[in-house]
Design a protein around this nucleic acid. Sequence first.
DNA 1: TATTATATTGCAACTTAGTTGCATAAACAA
DNA 2: TTGTTTATGCAACTAAGTTGCAATATAATA
Lengths: 126, 126
Amino acid sequence: MGILRKTKSVRLLLDEFDKSSSAISAIILIERLSLEMNKTTIYRILDKLEEDKVLHSFLGKNGHKWYAKCKECSASGHQDAHPHFQCSDCGKVDCLPTNVLIPKIPNRKVDTSQVLLQGKCEECFV
Amino acid sequence: MGILRKTKSVRLLLDEFDKSSSAISAIILIERLSLEMNKTTIYRILDKLEEDKVLHSFLGKNGHKWYAKCKECSASGHQDAHPHFQCSDCGKVDCLPTNVLIPKIPNRKVDTSQVLLQGKCEECFV
DNA sequence: TATTATATTGCAACTTAGTTGCATAAACAA
DNA sequence: TTGTTTATGCAACTAAGTTGCAATATAATA
């Protein structure tokens, strides 16, 4: 089951995602909210928000978990077929509005796909 | 610098990749070769083989590192634009010969791209 | 072949992202 | 306000991957 009670911790976490349009990693959240709540709480709330399809998660370049607000996810069945872009300079991660065409693979059933692009973001690419 | 000496450990590791056409995770190698060599040695040799473009690496579904023999990598500049497929049932990982078309992203420079597909593989998809 | 310089290995200890169990505290319905 | 259930904090744990260093194997040179 997902989120059942709107606690202070849930509100604080959601605030962070409302503040920025970029994705946020669990590590960054733990750092940012270290005075407000425990890391265990953060991991648990993130899990639930994902279950509730409020957030979607994916892995960044080091295999660390990132989260972003779901927009078109609920409509398309939470497929997250959009690519994620991580800047190799500043580390920032964004969801790209583009859709990547995943080719049909013979004899296999593709359920989910993750596309991670790396390079220079708008600010670091001068 | 990459591999300089053809040691017993290097040969044993390369043997594993010659035996199977699938990708192999560092964890699996550590398990398989536990009697032959130390995990530190395995991580170090994998690093060097990747530097030498003999292997390429990518992250599986849990953020764990996987390695596969390079085939067209050297030609295309080690871009690894091919997708990797991980079976959600048996866990096996393969390089797919297909190429995924990565769309141009305005105002950004894309250097590398990773595509991980998950679903049922040929054997588990009945 | 013996010697020597250098690369490689094993080991133990460490780092760190994420998880688990349990006692306590906060939500919320009645 | 009371009682039931959910959420939280804490400490301890798990596991992938890393680091420093002493010992060993490789390969070039004499």
